[in-house]
Design a protein around this nucleic acid. Sequence first.
DNA 1: TTTCTTACA
DNA 2: TGTAAGTA
Length: 150
Amino acid sequence: MAFINKHDLLKKGLQAERFKFRIGEIATMTGASTRQLRYWESKGIISPIKREGDEARVYNHETYIKVSMIKHFLDEGNSLKVAVQQTKELEKIWRTVHDVISVGVQGIGILDGEEVVDFGYFDEDHKQRLYAKRDDKQGIKYIVKDVADN
DNA sequence: TTTCTTACA
DNA sequence: TGTAAGTA
């Protein structure tokens, strides 16, 4: 069973924390204008993780998600103030989702000839592991397999 | 080409 | 917020 461990997975750059975007990219990805992004920054709603010298703003993955949510609520007809408030509530949920996936995915590899994602131990005794694979009809199929079988 | 700040609509 | 101007 040739599994790629978490370390290698991270080295491949699959962690969202490593993604960085410039203002124009955030704008095209979210639909928000660069003007809005700079305005929101002046209001303390968002902030770039850094500035390339004294030039371009650089945003992280978290900000991309946040901007996407604000834009979403704005498009629903909410005021900026309301959109930001609704976003704050959703951010908690998003962090949980992200963390669970980030910590949960232990590795990737081949199981019984098929590509699967290793989600780590399934039980308290660490005798079984949970795997998941893509299933065209049902979306995702989960597999619980005894560690001894590997 | 992209981003930046400033300023006016 | 959009847009124009003049830069870096």
